[in-house]
Design a protein around this nucleic acid. Structure first.
Lengths: 191, 191
DNA sequence: CATCTTGTCTAGCACTGCTAGGATCGGGTC
DNA sequence: GACCCGATCCTAGCAGTGCTAGACAAGATG
């Protein structure tokens, strides 16, 4: 059995390598540059090896997205727990979210822009995604006011996503991001 | 000269045909299905003809986007002008925007999701895009409160785009769209 | 040591956006 | 009306894409 276990370990390690390499390549040159050939070359295996781990490119994007979801949740929780008072925590959450999107554009794309074959907002939604939403919910519930916490969180999230998405694709000038953020926080959140 | 003019007319007509066909194909089967071969076949010309009108596929997407911007501006203006009072006009604007995104998903993608090679929020931004933003600005200025009208419009637009984008890609359940919309309108707009 | 499974690679498919070069058609000139 | 020449269009092809069938070799098992 030890032999089989070793093989499984090696296989798992290679899978992590694939995901890490795809993510790295995407952050460096964008997702368009992440082709199965280039990815295979970078991990020093042939193309078909990728398909013994993932059904296709879409699933690789999905794997990067799940990794990103975990990190996003952690980033949001770290930021909110370091702030005092509901209002300050919401502002910290918003900044942490936009900061994550700016620092990890490819991961953000994998999560919220591209098709990674993941189910969102359903029963079979992967745990990391549920948890990332939960991280938002924890802080935003306190400022939902008379709105349903889940619905409020969805709406607040959508506003943040709109800012992140439009800014990153050059549709909004990046200069006034902070002011837009403060506008969203101050108006959407009930004190 | 008449001959040349006729040729120019025919050429312009063919260009409109290309754009209309690309849009139609995109709405029917998504932008991925809009390949230069399929597009060429539908307009009953060979592929290279496309490149005598547009630099490449990106520019075709851009042409569809510009068409969509004009229609979006018209839709927003029609909706807002039919409502009484600033608050009702804002709600009408938001509904018209989301309605446009839902009815014309491919056009919406061309405008705000894909790369059509257009400049946004700059001096050399095409007129239809500027005008679409102006259509939002006209109504939203009245409810900007103490915020700068332009900045407020950008922020409100981002919130709407977030809703449209996340809903259309299956990241938000479509059921409660109306409630999220009302939340945005009631909290972002000052009465 | 022979066998057989497991894993990997080579080679190839059908498709993509895009382009070079040749053929053909039409208008302008004699 | 005949010719030429330029504009216009198409055939064929390039390099690249995601993905897969089948050959092959290395390893574990008897």
């Amino acid at each position: 059995m030890s032999v089989q276990e070793r093989k499984e370990r090696e296989r798992a390690a290679r899978e992590r390598l694939i995901v890490a390499t795809a993510r790295e390549l995407a952050e460096q040159q964008g997702w368009d540059a992440v082709t199965t050939r280039r990815l295979a070359e970078r991990i020093e295996y042939s193309q078909p090896v990728l398909y013994s781990h993932f059904r296709g490119k879409r699933e690789i994007i999905g794997a990067v997205a799940l990794q990103g979801a975990t990190e996003l949740a952690a980033a949001v929780r770290a930021a909110t727990s370091a702030a005092d008072g509901p209002r300050a925590r919401v502002a910290a959450l918003a900044r942490a979210y936009l900061d994550f999107a700016e620092r990890n554009p490819a991961v953000y794309d994998a999560l919220f822009e591209l098709d990674g074959g993941l189910a969102y907002a359903q029963e079979d939604t992967p745990e990391p995604l549920k948890d990332a939403f939960a991280a938002l919910l924890e802080t935003l519930t306190d400022v939902a006011g008379d709105a349903h916490p889940g619905l409020f969180t969805e709406t607040f999230w959508a506003a943040l996503h709109g800012l992140a998405s439009l800014t990153r694709t050059g549709r909004l000038p990046p200069a006034d991001t902070e002011q837009r953020l403060e506008l969203i926080v101050s108006r959407l959140a009930t004190t």
